[in-house]
Amino acid sequence: MATPMGTPVHRLVAYFTESLALRVARLYPHIFTINAPPRRLLDASEEDDATALRLLDLISPIPKFVHFTLNEMLLKAFQGRDRVHVIDLDIKQGLQWPSLLQSLASRPSPPSHVRITGVGESRPDLHATGVRLARIAESLHLPFEFHPVVDRFEDLRLWMLHVKREECVAVSCSLVMHRALHDETGKAFMDLLGLIRSTNPATVVMAEQEAEHNEPEWGRRLARSLNHYAAIFDSLDDVLPQDSHARIKVEELFAKEIRNIVACEGDERIERHESFEGWRRKMMQEGGFTWLGIGEREMLQSRMILRMYSCNKYSIDVQGREGEGGGGGGGGGEEGHGLTLKWLDQPLYTVSAWVPVGVAGSSSPHLGQI
């Protein structure tokens, strides 16, 4: 009865069944094979992913919650700064940045220069993103530079980012940090944090799936991923009919994550989502970062986004209120340390802002020597 064209449960079971079959074939290749797997068992093309992301942005508050709330955190860091530089570790189509450019341009004293460094593995996609953002900046009369870096974020080096002394630097890690956990020794993650620290950022904004899909025990990982993606598929059912091609496109994007979580192990398993509490431990205890806190503007921004959608099943939850676990933290944390988007009782995504301990939220002069 499972089918990608049925109810949310039917669709979810269809993708999980395919993922289980793929896992069995990988674990026991001398016994099982998958002949002529359906297209959705194969990796979708980058073009398919790009289309799915655009569609998701149109039908769901998830991308807008991530993008607009992170941008509000960036605007706080850029307050009063004349030259600003955003380093996006996985820019894709750059859907987050037009609204930031508009907000910067509308300030009484806009920055004299804005630079976005976009990291990605496709040179044509980076070029198209840069051209699109440059046109938007030009229409806003905002001095702008786009710096493309064609590489995996794991292979970045500081010299590639062209950080300059006079810039206020911010690093954007939107749904990317968990991929550094594929190296179970922890080296790749610590190297990434070291690179981020070396830019001397005023802020590091971060969005991640609010889930625990990095469990070494496969059974718990399977159960938790079922709950997480059941909520996402249910939310899509609330806005699109069963026969919607747009819905199928978007669900196949999430199906890629499901396949990786369920079917893959070792270095191949890159969808290693952690809860906010897990990231708190990694950032603070292992990485030497502290949270910057969530203020009233970020709270208002995220709730305003939900009011744009005629659905009362979404809500915003605050992570790490003062007095709750973890203790300590940077300034401005009177409201909490992270914001989580929920569907009914199921947490979906959390956004937060961090800074290396001792940086005090500003880029320092020694970077001019790099």
Rank of each mutant, 00 (worst) to 15 (best):
7 T>Q: 01
8 P>E: 00
9 V>D: 01
11 R>C: 02
11 R>A: 00
14 A>F: 06
16 F>L: 10
17 T>F: 11
25 A>W: 01
26 R>P: 00
26 R>Y: 01
37 P>K: 08
44 A>H: 10
46 E>S: 11
47 E>M: 11
47 E>R: 06
48 D>K: 06
55 L>M: 10
64 K>H: 15
67 H>A: 12
72 E>F: 04
78 F>A: 05
81 R>K: 07
83 R>Y: 06
85 H>D: 10
92 K>F: 09
94 G>M: 09
95 L>W: 10
98 P>H: 03
99 S>T: 12
101 L>S: 02
101 L>F: 05
106 S>L: 01
114 V>K: 01
114 V>Y: 01
116 I>A: 00
117 T>Q: 03
118 G>Y: 00
118 G>I: 00
119 V>P: 00
119 V>M: 01
124 P>H: 01
125 D>S: 09
127 H>F: 14
134 A>I: 06
135 R>T: 12
136 I>L: 08
138 E>C: 09
142 L>S: 13
146 F>V: 11
150 V>F: 09
164 K>M: 12
165 R>G: 15
165 R>P: 12
168 C>K: 09
172 S>L: 08
180 A>P: 02
186 G>K: 05
198 S>T: 07
212 E>S: 15
217 E>F: 13
218 W>E: 09
221 R>V: 03
224 R>E: 04
233 F>Y: 05
241 P>F: 01
244 S>L: 00
247 R>Q: 02
249 K>L: 11
254 F>A: 05
256 K>S: 12
259 R>K: 13
262 V>N: 07
266 G>K: 13
267 D>I: 15
269 R>S: 08
269 R>L: 14
272 R>I: 11
273 H>T: 13
275 S>T: 15
277 E>F: 14
291 W>Y: 12
299 M>I: 08
301 Q>I: 04
301 Q>W: 02
314 Y>F: 15
316 I>W: 05
327 G>C: 05
336 G>K: 00
336 G>T: 00
337 H>M: 03
341 L>T: 03
345 D>M: 10
346 Q>A: 02
348 L>T: 05
351 V>W: 08
368 G>D: 10
